[in-house]
Design a binder for these strands. Structure first.
Length: 893
DNA sequence: GCGGACTGCTTACCT
DNA sequence: ACAGGTAAGCAGTCCGCG
């Protein structure tokens, strides 16, 4: 079996490629040596073997785009500079003749020349002649506060025009695209992919055996149209390529401040860097310590394989740090953009280091590296889409301790004194642990984080640095932009899309929202055995594909298409031409559902390959989950509310039709939400009939996602519990699951889950009910007798969503507690977790740290216990107050 | 002056 | 800076009540 798996792996990828055995030694020692002494990174030689495109930027000194190539065999970064003479530009609807009249433009030192070009206007659906305004450097187009070409054109022309012109009629297009992105699109480059340098040119390396892959793809997607297949192939060629072995080092620094609680300002860098730790993928484990008077070595030691270096001067320590930053192709930090790298930069400047001695390029909000690629994992793990869809919402606040604890099971070292009071060994251990956690966040699960970034970089056509720092709407925007350029489409301005196609027509249920969203079916309360949950895999992306949704196709110009109405809306959608979104998102959906998801589970494939496919399908999931929402987000450059509205409307229509059909087939629908239906005890034949009907009538697939041995519904929507065949209890939306409720109550809820997990048949319920009654009585008595383990167990943990002064309309309880905490000198900011308990006296809340056992308002906790359990009890025919032994009369009182 | 009906705010969840 | 829908608890307001 194993041999067979290996064989298939070999067929997919030539082994020489996968392991880089064939790579020959590079012949650039002399030049390389000189550059290194001058702290200049190596230039790619005329010929360079397989290397990954990991970063791109504009090099102002050279006046060229710079691409960083990572060559895995030598584990080095090589620089490749543009040698094609490509220039930055934007478009305008003014003619060169008109532009010549604008003095400030013609005299602009950054202007190169004008060209008349023909583009396709996707909003008006016709070719259009525009003037390409070509510049000598990207900052001339935009980016400087004033006097940029993109501002001068609409500002100045109305003043000098012979006929009256309104500034709104003067258009400038594509002036806000970063120059290196523009370059990537125009040159048809694929960040994250493998290139060779041949005679000075960048050449994309083709996947070996790709014909075989494509043939397999064609057979899996035999129903796709040729146009669709083209896109499926395009994405697959990008995604199939394996990832390199990354060489990287994680870093963490400690600064000694006089006030222990305050984070030092990295822009001032007023205090010494006293410790820096490194943890590398090549086994490097190094701690650098600054010698200071009055500090002892102290007890404790680091693992044997950690090198410890002491430095007499901070300058020398910084030099030793910088040597590592010049050396490694990937530097990993946790908040290095805002702190570590920024601090090091300014600290070195304060010590009189020259610019070219410092390997860091500090920007407004990021810190990049002159040599390698800096990945700030804080930014990456902070990304909501990554947090929710890639890591299943396992960590809630984005701190090294929380993320490390929940994903790796490693905690930061606890500190009970300031950095300045630690012994060398304590300091080294503390700092090294942080570097270790940071490293492991990058390395765990087969370098999942780095590989996700690489895959997302390929999909979005963005450098790894940008993709790891920006949100999903930027990723989607960029692959849309690439496709516009590839087709010669003018990239429309957001205000033009909105003016032409911006209106929504439905009324949202939630006040303040722009349009109506998904449908939720009223649940049938009670206990139901054998419940099949059927759902549409990627419903919204499927709708975007099947219904041809996109900003071009919605409310299109053709008279003939006006009959093609979206249900429940007055909108129509184009029948004549596929929208780009429909093709791009549709192909990504198809690949995830029919290719990568199955392959990630295919046990006949080698584990290595399966893991790679699993990462790809995870990356696709993140993108697909956001692919509908972005159209309803004002911040998205192709914002088009009717597209989002139409998607949701078709979703409601789809699920409604399924429910009708289930009824016709005699299946009872117990519940449904957005894209799912819960069916009571359906026969296999009924399920098949529903699947076939959906395929035939709706041109979509629906399948059985899971089967519950039994499910318990309360009368509330988004609130239920299902027990799987293996006894796993799926809890959705119930209070007992919410993360802010006290541990004390959560423990009772967990015990109830255990009792429910054992129920196999309706008869078993009697036992389970008895157990549950006992649990409730138990917890009730413990509360009344004030018998809890630790007052922490009673704490509510609520996140402060806003800065504390921002709560003006009301003062919620957690804010009351936060204000009390603040008055004791604790600094609090948005995003902090507030732990408080309920107490008898005004204002009825107290930070848990300040509360005493006897002031706890026990009855409040009984109320919470009641409401938590009632969500389940009413379905079981139990009554909380009866359970705890209150008579009807007592309850009335 | 107090309590119930109501609305609005906030958080945490579901898809 | 992806979206809307739902639950729960509490804060605050209005109004009736001799």
């Amino acid at each position: 079996m194993k041999d067979m798996a290996q064989k298939r792996l070999d067929e997919f990828y030539s082994p020489s490629f996968l392991h880089f055995k064939e790579t020959k030694a590079e012949t650039l020692p002399l030049m390389d040596q000189i550059r290194k002494e001058k702290n200049l990174p190596p230039i790619a030689p005329e010929n360079l073997s397989s290397s990954y495109f990991v970063s791109a930027t504009y090099d102002g000194k050279e006046g060229k785009v710079l691409i960083k190539l990572y060559e895995p065999a030598s584990a080095k970064i090589y620089f490749w500079y543009d040698n094609t003479g490509h220039k930055p530009y934007c478009f305008t609807n003014l003619s060169p003749y008109e532009l010549e009249k604008i003095d400030r433009l013609v005299n602009h030192p950054g202007l190169s020349h004008f060209e008349i070009v023909e583009k396709f206007d996707p909003l008006l659906e016709k070719p259009i002649k525009v003037t390409k305004v070509v510049a000598k450097d990207p900052l001339a187009i935009g980016g400087r506060p004033k006097g940029c070409i993109r501002d001068i054109i609409p500002d100045d022309f109305p003043k000098i025009s012979d006929v009256p012109v309104s500034p709104q009629n003067i258009k400038v297009w594509e002036a806000k695209i970063k120059y290196y992105q523009s370059y990537i699109y125009d040159m048809g480059l694929y960040p994250g992919m493998i290139y060779e340098v041949k005679d000075g040119k960048l050449v994309l390396k083709r996947l070996e055996n790709s014909e075989r892959m494509i043939a397999s793809l064609k057979s899996v997607f035999r129903d796709a149209s040729p146009e669709e297949l083209e896109y499926i192939e395009m994405w697959a060629r990008l995604l199939e390529y394996p990832a390199p072995k990354f060489r990287y080092v994680a870093m963490d620094i400690e600064v000694c401040t006089p006030v222990a609680t305050r984070m030092p300002d990295p822009r001032e860098a007023a205090y010494p860097v006293v410790c820096v730790s490194f943890y590398g993928s090549d086994g490097l484990k190094r701690v650098l310590l600054l010698k200071r008077e009055g500090v002892n070595k102290g007890e404790g030691k680091l693992p044997d394989d950690v090198e410890v270096h002491y430095f007499d001067s901070e300058e020398n320590l910084l030099r030793a740090v910088f040597e590592v930053l010049w050396d490694y192709p990937f530097i990993i930090t946790f908040n290095g953009d805002e702190f570590d790298l920024r601090y090091l930069t300014h600290r070195a400047e304060n010590h009189g280091f020259k610019r070219n001695e410092i390997p860091i390029e500090p920007g407004k909000r990021v810190c990049l590296l002159k040599y390698g690629v800096h990945i700030d994992l804080y930014k990456f793990f902070f990304n909501r889409s990554i947090q929710v869809y890639a890591f299943g919402n396992r960590y809630r606040d984005v701190t090294l301790d929380e993320v490390g604890r929940t994903l790796l099971g490693i905690e930061k070292m606890p500190l009970d004194k300031g950095i300045g009071e630690l012994t060398y060994m304590e300091l080294a251990q503390y700092c090294f642990r942080d570097a270790e956690i940071t490293y492991k966040l990058a390395s765990f699960e087969d370098e999942l984080a780095l590989k996700l970034i690489l895959v997302l970089s390929r999909i979005s056509a963005m450098p790894m640095e940008d993709v790891s720092r920006q949100g999903v709407s930027r990723w989607i925007r960029n692959f849309m932009h690439r496709e516009h350029r590839r087709r010669g489409y003018l990239i429309p301005n957001a205000e033009d899309i909105l003016a032409l196609k911006g209106k929504t027509a439905t009324r949202a249920i939630i006040k303040g929202k722009k349009y109506k969203g998904a449908m939720v079916v009223e649940p049938v309360p009670g206990v139901h055995f054998n419940v099949a949950v059927m759902d549409f895999p990627s419903l919204y992306p499927s709708i975007i594909k099947i219904w041809n949704l996109g900003y071009q196709s919605i409310l299109c110009q053709h008279e003939e298409c006006r009959q093609n109405i979206i249900p429940d809306t007055p909108h129509w959608v184009c029948r004549k031409k596929r929208a780009l979104e429909s093709l791009l998102i549709g192909a990504l959906r198809d690949l995830r559902v029919a290719w990568y998801k199955p392959k990630s589970k295919d046990k006949t494939l080698p584990a290595e390959l399966r893991s790679w496919y699993n990462i790809i399908q995870g990356a696709l999931k993140v993108i697909l989950n956001a692919s509908y929402g972005v159209f309803g987000a004002e911040s998205f450059d192709l914002y088009c509310p009717p597209v989002a509205e139409a998607t949701a409307a078709i979703g409601r229509h789809t699920i409604t039709r399924i429910i009708e059909k289930a009824g016709e087939l005699g299946i009872q629908v117990l519940y449904g939400d957005t894209d799912s239906v819960f069916l009571k005890n359906p026969t296999p034949a009924q399920i098949r009939a529903l699947e076939e009907w959906t395929e035939r009538e709706l041109n979509m697939n629906i399948d059985v996602d899971k089967v519950y041995r039994y499910a318990v519904f309360s009368s509330r929507k988004k609130n239920y519990l299902g027990v799987m065949d293996d006894g796993t209890v799926d809890v959705k939306g119930l209070t007992g699951k919410k993360r802010h409720i006290p541990l004390f109550i959560k423990k009772a809820f967990e015990k109830m889950k255990e009792a429910l997990s054992k129920v196999k048949s309706p008869a078993d319920f009697e036992n389970a009910k008895r157990e549950i009654v006992q649990i409730i009585r138990d917890w009730y008595t413990r509360l009344k007798r004030r018998e809890w383990g630790n007052i922490q167990e009673l704490a509510f943990n609520v996140i402060l969503g806003e800065e504390i002064g921002h709560y003006t309309k009301t003062t919620p309880q957690h804010v009351k507690a936060a204000r009390i905490l603040q008055s004791t000198g604790v600094e609090l900011k948005a995003g902090d977790l507030i732990s408080f308990v309920k107490v008898i006296h005004e204002p009825h809340v107290k930070p848990v740290m300040l509360a005493a056992k006897n002031e706890i308002d026990v009855d409040k906790y009984v109320d919470y216990l009641r409401s938590t359990f009632e969500q389940v009890l009413d379905a079981l025919g139990l009554d909380f107050d009866e359970v705890i032994g209150l008579t009807k009369l007592e309850r009335f009182m």
